[in-house]
């Protein structure tokens, strides 16, 4: 979060100062507006459904958001390191499939009679390996991330089918019961996991030299290379970090669902949307870890609030879609103003 990155952002390279001012005003309105909208949403739900604003419910939402949050943070790291261009920039489409395979590996190892230590190692190694393959495809072979990770996604999803025969593999262990239980203040342990994980990821990405280099590489790779940064290594590292997030999310998912189940692939779009939405919660409209946490929680609170208000479940996805469209449209509008 330092000022010199700001000057590298493509949308500020336009010459016309007045347009720039208009752009940053729109940006300010959007940033302020999105936080305001989030706050208004919370207030609205709290008034309309008194149960909404209770520690127990907020804890539940945090816990329910843990899997999505960890995946979205992984994707955010890739987007920061690869640049935010949706077509050519950094993206990891294999994350949801990674979650599925890592969860399947974890559940299979547990049901084969091994302990948590082996299962955790297996799941994280699976995630890291998927990340390494993505990294090799993008950095060594120079394949566009969108296509590289799409291909890896299919391979990984196929492996999950081979491993589980497309069935539910149930699993129970001490670690899993601990993760799915409730901790201090009757708040789910997963809520603490999400909070702790976000804090660590945010500390590394936003407040260390490594994080600063990650932003530099993503925003202006040529300049970063000229400045002597190991661009390829940093980009590769972002994919491996993302893969590890997939492995971790896999473990959380096994604890949440008491096993590995099919349909992990359905997480893909929510993950992408959440990571992309994160920009509206940052000061300079760049993806940040904190912003990703906020957008994860936005989706979580929306679902929760709708359920508490007893709004027909058939309406929920529609309303969510409209809200996402509004935010993305506002962001694009603001970006467009800045760039032209």
């Amino acid at each position: 979060m330092s000022a010199d990155i700001d000057t590298l952002l493509p949308y500020e390279t336009g010459g016309d100062i007045r347009r720039r001012i208009a752009g940053s005003l729109a940006g300010f309105a959007l940033r302020g507006g999105s936080l305001l909208a989030f706050a208004a949403l919370l207030v609205f739900f709290s008034v309309a459904a008194p149960f909404f604003f209770t520690l127990g419910n907020i804890g539940n939402v945090l816990g329910q958001s843990a899997i999505l949050g960890v995946l979205a943070i992984g994707l955010t790291i890739v987007i920061i390191g690869g640049g935010a261009n949706v077509v050519k920039g950094g993206i990891d489409l294999s994350l949801a499939a990674n979650l599925g395979l890592s969860a399947a590996v974890y559940a299979t190892i547990i049901s084969a009679g091994y302990g948590d230590a082996v299962a955790v190692a297996g799941a994280l190694a699976t995630g890291a390996l998927i990340g390494a393959i993505n990294a090799a495809a993008v950095v060594v072979f120079g394949i566009v991330p969108l296509l590289a990770t799409l291909a890896v996604m299919n391979v990984v999803a196929g492996l999950e089918l081979v491993l589980t025969q497309n069935t539910v593999v149930s699993a129970s262990s001490d670690l899993l019961s601990f993760l799915s239980a409730y901790g201090p203040f009757d708040i789910p342990v997963l809520a603490y996991v999400l909070t702790g994980f976000t804090a660590i990821a945010a500390a590394i990405v936003q407040f260390t030299p490594l994080g600063l280099r990650l932003y530099a590489v993503g925003a202006f790779p040529e300049a970063a290379r000229a400045a002597g940064l190991p661009v390829k290594r940093i980009v590769a590292g972002s994919y491996i970090a993302s893969g590890l997030c997939g492995g971790l999310a896999g473990i959380l998912s096994v604890s949440y669902l008491s096993g590995s189940t099919t349909g992990a692939g359905e997480m893909l779009l929510p993950v992408v949307v959440t990571a992309l939405l994160s920009v509206v919660f940052s000061r300079r409209l760049v993806p940040t870890i904190g912003g990703t946490l906020l957008s994860t929680l936005l989706v979580g609170f929306l679902t929760n609030g709708f359920q508490l208000l007893n709004i027909s479940s058939t309406l929920v996805s529609g309303i969510q879609g409209v809200l996402i469209l509004l935010v993305v449209a506002a962001t694009s509008l603001q970006r467009g103003k800045g760039a032209v």
Binding site: Q64, I67, S313
Partner: peptide
């Protein structure tokens, strides 16, 4: 009334809530 649309993660969240 809530419907998890055949998504187990959603189903667990809705039961929790």
């Amino acid at each position: 009334a809530v419907d998890a649309q055949r998504n187990d993660t959603k189903l667990v969240s809705q039961l929790q809530t």
